[in-house]
Design a protein around this nucleic acid. Structure first.
Lengths: 157, 157
DNA sequence: CTCTATGCAAAGGTTTTGCACTACC
DNA sequence: GGTAGTGCAAAACCTTTGCATAGAG
């Protein structure tokens, strides 16, 4: 689905839920769509808007993110730094989206592949838990840092 | 492994790393051990200490948690509320520990079963990522809320 | 006895809120 | 035109830090 279609879809959702389509909200949704792989925080979205010469309040960003989260169009994710980040949650991306975080350099990579179909079935049966979504994050070393570590082990010590 | 053994093990770790075994730190570790299934936040630990008639600073709790986290005896986990919570990370619990969060009542259940052995192998090969740990959380409806929802659908609407 | 750990309070950073003003529907 | 949304600043919240004091090794 292209960005424009998704834009319209999200706007329709908001409209149907009785929210007004303000200029600010549209700009925020656009930033989210344009950066949907990056897990922006509220402040990063705000800075992105400033770059685009929009200048409106950080509070509005938070309020819009709250609305989208409430409507289940957006998911709040927290990594280890205590800052809330946001993931767009469009149908075709749902369930196909996990994170790899490098503990060395901090880089976050998204993987788009559903690895948990079987695991979810097991959880549903064994724990009587009706799964609607999941969060899966792997911590470890990315390829770059594995290489650096191997080199470091040779040159030092 | 019983609580006392773990207590001693953790104290040895701290001692070996050159940290002093103060009364406060021992009390905090004890709270963590006694509540190891509950993912306490710093403040909840502090309140638990108050209940036990210890009265020392919240800053000390944070500092102790930082030390334990740095030593990899503890893992910081963040759920969606933006408050840092902590999981003890003793050897036999590592990798056998995921969360089920009910989106209705907010209840969190731990499951102790490694569901990800195969998935980790796949990630290692396919993405050249050396996995050292993982976080897996399922969101959905717990058995109770499934039941309530079923009843509600009948009585209302 | 030394150096680390503590307690308190103040500062820091992120998020929320109150209120007057604006603008969408 | 009425109501929901905005901006600003202040508050609230969780966490960290500075500094004088206390206590472990």
């Amino acid at each position: 689905m292209d960005t424009n279609d998704e834009m319209i879809k999200i706007q329709n959702c908001m409209h149907d839920a009785g929210f007004k389509l303000t200029f600010q909200r549209q700009a925020i949704v656009k930033v989210l769509l344009d950066h949907h792989q990056e897990h922006l925080s509220a402040e990063e979205i705000y800075i992105e808007l400033l770059k685009q010469s929009f200048s409106f309040g950080l509070a509005t960003v938070y309020r819009t993110l709250d609305i989208l989260t409430e409507m289940n169009l957006l998911t709040r994710v927290s990594f280890e730094d205590g800052i809330a980040r946001y993931d767009l949650r469009t149908e075709d991306r749902r369930h196909f989206h996990h994170h790899l975080i490098c503990t060395q350099c901090g880089k976050t990579v998204e993987i788009h592949q559903d690895l948990l179909i079987d695991v979810e079935k097991l959880v549903a049966h064994q724990y009587h838990f009706e799964v609607s979504d999941h969060r899966l994050t792997f911590l470890g070393l990315c390829a770059d840092c594995q290489r650096k570590k191997a080199l470091g082990d040779v040159s030092h010590r």
